[in-house]
Design a protein around this nucleic acid. Structure first.
Lengths: 152, 152
DNA sequence: GCTGAAAACAAATTATG
DNA sequence: CATAATTTGTTTTCAGC
């Protein structure tokens, strides 16, 4: 599917606030309500919009500690990789996990209550996964920017 | 604000899919529609729900290249720090930026089309910001997990 | 804080130019 | 594509417990 400027503008607006009415969107874009409605359905059906979610304020729900954690496996056999990825997906504390280039194999973004909870997470959850060789953690001192919106 | 189990369940559901109707939520929670409605409003007014957004599928909009980029400043004077953070917030390619502990000062999550676009970003945008000492980039080979939902 | 029902509003469908 | 009219469904308000 090829996106024209209207689609891009529409996605931009919906990535900012998905609770806007089609009327508000139609005003912002200079389209009719029906046109906006059809474009949104098309974007949904093509999987360009993958879903709609509520965003929760970390600090207000007592999850103020973010860490990035590098993980290296002892071996890179297919089996170990699949097993590690499966286990890590199950961990609620892990918001993101990437297989990356460089000295380590994986980079995890971990969200917990505080440093004590992070220690708990490392000792009882993460390093309980088999075949982890080594880890290296970096702690977030301040979140400078955080957006879910992709620029188009 | 103290969250009871109902609030937590509700937040869980809304973080999965914010387009569910209050009726569907009331069924899932065993509450009346009005009770659900009032709880949601309270969560919004207390800033626990910070907003509702549409999620866009990266790969479908030709943004398939994710990199994590460490940045070190030449100095850590208040002035340099403020300036860097201000500039980096303006860059659309930077989805996340964290001030972190460790050898580097910042960790950025960067989203672009491809490696060529990343090079372009580094040369023309990021390293154009004053007072950057050094950078070190890691490329995402595979996204194993990515969620916006905070577990409660 | 909860319920159930009414009123207000928006989404979704259909018809028409 | 846009508009308008309609139905269907959802949100919001309100009286009462």
């Amino acid at each position: 599917m090829i996106l024209d400027e209207m689609d891009k503008q529409l996605l931009l607006l919906l990535q900012e606030d998905s609770k806007q009415t089609n009327k508000a969107l139609s005003n912002a874009l200079g389209l009719s309500v029906t046109a906006v409605y059809e474009r949104i359905r098309k974007l949904e059906n093509n999987g360009i919009i993958s879903g709609y979610v509520a965003l929760v304020e970390k600090k207000k729900v007592d999850k103020s500690f973010v860490a990035f954690c590098h993980v290296k496996l002892v071996q890179h056999s297919q089996d170990y990789v699949v097993r590690f990825e499966k286990e890590v997906r199950k961990l609620d504390e892990v918001l993101e996990c990437y297989h990356i280039s460089g000295d380590y194999d994986y980079l995890l973004k971990v969200l917990v209550k505080d440093m004590a909870a992070f220690r708990e997470f490392m000792v009882n959850k993460l390093t309980n996964i088999d075949h982890i060789g080594s880890t290296h953690s970096m702690f977030v001192i301040n979140e400078v920017k955080h957006t879910t919106a992709i620029s188009l």
